[in-house]
Design a protein around this nucleic acid. Structure first.
Lengths: 219, 219, 219, 219
DNA sequence: AATGAATGAGGATTCATTCAT
DNA sequence: TATGAATGAATCCTCATTCAT
């Protein structure tokens, strides 16, 4: 068996174990058992230590997720669209690779790489970009990034506990809630924009083609 | 030393250890060391097992938090006001008792009591109440409850990692984001709109005065 | 509470615990719980150590047993009668004070006093006396003493596991078996009365009348 | 070192420790020390838990004993002969493998398998068989089985405490006592031989020569 | 005489890791 | 590469005993 394949196999078993039992109950013994390995020594042979395995789990999930998310992003050309695509991609990924996402949550506090701020940074950048384009209102991008990832994580944590959670409903509600939280109020009557202050300078049209439809008419 | 005092001391040391090292690294040995106890046996003497200690940590934090949150809620008489007060109380509590909240997060997956759904249920009830009163728009209350608690947890997780996080800013942004996500679009007419509401109250006073105002305009 | 009463209470609880859970599972904590004591410290206060308690358990049971057995022995004037009375007394005591006997068995290997040989010695003396009197045949008294106490212990161990054991039947069979093992063959012909001497006293009279009947005729 | 060999080594050390110190004082630490292991973890590595080790100790001793007893039984064709062979085998085994037998006694109350009733059942069956064949008198077979195993256990317990016990003497006396207890009275008149059947035919014959001899003098 | 908290050694067991094969 | 036995520290927990009150 090739080195790479072996590592992948071990990482896969680790992900399943983490998702099922949580970090504290995930031992080499249990990972080896799930992978059908004859010895925990094999894990130590392929990974310098537990830390490296944990880091690799994280990297693997993020890699898979990045691949997955690509298909949702490449057709967006606005920040709001990209944000929406990001959220949709997350929700869909949860459904298809629930254990991967749960494992990621479990592993997060024990990961050596302290680049998880990177997610936040990239999200904040996206938000700022949208603000510059006039798509978003004038919130603090750094904080809003925390919020949006928090929403993602919260849904993830919830679905980890309640597998019957309606992810379609979640997706719809999440998109709407985030749209409202991030975009300026639009006037029901007349031209929008009365909230001058939080209105981004440029006048760019929001990427709201579908999600952007105001249900606001119901007022 | 009295039993009650000793238990409190141990719980306190456990909270600090959990907040600092996380669940997996929190052992009786470390707790005993932090509490200045002569042996881990003393912990087992006062608690039937690790589970009881963990449960007690959770109960203690929730007790403190409930006490704390009281001062923010009792003057609210609308659902929106109560929601806002809840969020404010959470943020403030994070600042004053950061380790308590972090410990709570760490302990959550290992707690025996499975009433964490209760938080969700109560929040959903509050939201539905607000919907009946016309304060909130027509979202799915169960899912929105997940979102709101997710936001709280997300901020908490963030502040656990970055102690320099500006919680005042977070509070303002969180209130505004939640207000936007939960309430219907408002007509541009009328002066109030510009968000006088999302201004953090003077002292501990919850923003009930404005929030409590029926936005009767909406039908 | 008087010292003596306290010790008795503790010994009593220890006996019950030993009988129910066995030596290895009998701790001061469990004894204290059963006795309704507030602390295991009280046991250490009244007994110098676990060893003293264990020894006292043994002494207490033997004391009770000795008292009990008196009523069976005092009217016997032959060795065979005394032996029979001893066996009967043992069986009866098992029924009335099962936990005492079971506790004695449990405690036996851990007792400091090495005078358990005394039982053997006394039994051997009795047997030798009966041999001198012509009541018993020419076996090795020391070994036969081992056998007889083994039979007692075996029945005890059995009744400890199977509380439904028919002790009446056991008694009859035991008396007959021991009689046969210890006495010389008797001719079928001739009056059996040769053992008139070893007749047990009035009251506790063993059911020898039937068991004593030689079924030998069928040979 | 192979797994099987290691397990055998650990079981061996456990047997010795049990025989020497008794169950309550037999810890993994002591077993490891006697076996020359570097840590108790090695025992846990080879045995799932203390219970498995204890069960294995029992199984090992019974296996050895079964093998040993085979050589004594296979040439017997009567119930009485088989009973005698069983007793002889037991006594001989005690001499050759004293610690095994003592360990078995120590371990008995803590063994998970509850098939110790099986010994009793098999013995009772043998006795009933002998009764049907006219070799034994009309005792209660179930109770007599208790007696016979009690005698075996009693001798074993005695030899555990007094290694100088004369097992040859024990054997002779035990065979004679059991013969008398189980067989019908024989008429004094006439040459013995009435029980010719229960004499084991072949050469492995136990010390039947003397035990079988009527001490006819006693008439 | 009694309490009950405290002690520290010892219990079995799991852990990640090492190493000879 | 892979095996699986070995290691020893660490896990939670129970134990008999001590001691101030």
């Amino acid at each position: 068996m090739t080195e790479q394949a072996r590592r992948a196999q071990i990482v896969g078993a680790a992900i399943e174990t983490l998702a099922e039992l949580g970090y504290a109950e995930t031992s080499f013994k249990r990972i080896a058992a799930r992978a059908g390995l004859s010895s925990t020594g094999l894990i130590s042979y392929h990974f310098k230590g537990k830390q490296e395995l944990v880091d690799e789990v994280r990297a693997e999930v993020l890699r898979r997720f990045a691949d997955f998310v690509m298909g949702f992003l490449d057709r967006s050309d606005t920040a709001a669209g990209e944000l929406r695509a990001f959220l949709v991609a997350n929700l869909r990924f949860m459904r298809l690779h629930r254990s991967h996402m749960v494992a990621l949550m479990q592993v997060r506090p024990h990961v050596s790489a302290r680049d998880e701020g990177e997610d936040l940074r990239k999200m904040a950048d996206l938000l700022r970009e949208g603000q510059r384009a006039g798509e978003f209102r004038g919130f603090d991008a750094g904080v809003m990034a925390v919020f949006i990832l928090a929403l993602r994580n919260g849904v993830l944590a919830r679905v980890a506990e309640d597998p019957d959670l309606d992810l379609d409903l979640c997706e719809r509600e999440l998109l709407e809630a985030v749209r409202r939280a991030t975009t300026a109020d639009r006037p029901v009557t007349g031209a929008e924009g009365t909230e001058g202050t939080d209105r981004p300078p440029g006048g760019a049209a929001p990427p709201r083609t579908s999600a952007g439809q105001p249900r606001g008419t119901r007022g």
